[in-house]
């Protein structure tokens, strides 16, 4: 007889408990909030005041410090939403559904920010607010996918059906993520290739990329804060009949 073993770590099962998840988010929130505040403030001051101007683009290149982090986050957030949706589909885990639902509005606003800062940056650099270029178009599709997931979530009354439908949509839309990533290599495009790669040193000097790295990490910390705030709301709303939520409300 083969003994049936738990092949996933213990915290994975604990995550399935809304109560445990609510509490651990509450404990993690202040740390991430402080980290986000320090990194974003420090990054913005460095980006605006101390980073040297680009020799071709002058000072308009400072938009990169918002454009790149928001674009990276929009894609990471989408992948997280799709993975959480898949976990919810496979293991019927309520918390995973709530995570997927909470990811959508944050990712949508990040996609909007990436598109708008890109348009604003494109005007002085390319001479046009918008071109129907592979990178820009695939990013616009990402925004529409987010809006589709949000619309599905709000249109379907039953929470579990809404979660299933939006999980399927986000999994299908996952094919867009590599298209965004490789669009600058596959098609002739105005958009420049990736600023950061894992294997090579950045082509820019350190006083330019260190603040960019700070902004990227800061955006991730901010994402964690916003996601946990939304997740806690979602847990309270769906678990409103549970005893521990009643106790929590009465103790306030």
């Amino acid at each position: 007889m083969v003994e049936k073993k738990k092949w996933l770590p213990r915290w994975f099962y604990q995550l399935a408990s809304p109560r445990w998840c609510y509490q651990i988010c509450g404990k993690l929130l202040p740390g991430f909030a402080v980290a986000a505040l320090i990194l974003l403030l420090g990054g913005i001051v460095w980006a605006l005041l101390f980073a040297p101007a680009d020799y071709q683009q002058g000072n308009s290149f400072r938009i990169i410090y918002l454009h790149v982090p928001s674009a990276i986050l929009a894609q990471s957030c989408y992948m997280m939403m799709a993975v959480a949706g898949a976990i919810g589909l496979i293991w019927k885990m309520k918390v995973a559904d709530m995570v997927a639902k909470s990811c959508a509005p944050i990712g949508a606003t990040m996609a909007v920010l990436a598109l708008l800062t890109g348009a604003i940056w494109g005007k002085p650099t390319w001479g046009s607010w918008w071109v129907w270029d592979a990178r820009l178009t695939s990013m616009l599709i990402l925004l529409f996918l987010y809006l589709g997931v949000m619309a599905l979530n709000s249109a379907i009354e039953s929470e579990s059906t809404a979660a299933q439908a939006s999980a399927v949509l986000s999994l299908v839309g996952l094919v867009n993520i590599p298209i965004i990533k490789y669009s600058v290599d596959w098609w002739n495009t105005l958009h420049q290739p990736a600023t950061f790669t894992l294997t090579e040193r950045p082509a820019m000097p350190a006083e330019m990329w260190v603040p960019l790295l700070m902004m990227v990490v800061g955006f991730y910390c901010f994402f964690a804060v916003s996601l946990m705030l939304r997740l806690r709301n979602e847990i309270l709303r769906r678990e409103r009949r549970a005893g521990w939520v009643r106790d929590l409300l009465l103790s306030k």
Partner: peptide, 27 residues
């Protein structure tokens, strides 16, 4: 900003607005 002030400040205003919105709305 070397003549690009409008673009840079518009971007940063949008960035700040989006970040604050994502914190204020859930609170």
């Amino acid at each position: 900003m070397g003549g690009h002030g409008l673009y840079v400040w518009l971007s940063y205003a949008l960035g700040l607005a989006v970040i604050l919105l994502n914190l204020v709305a859930p609170l």
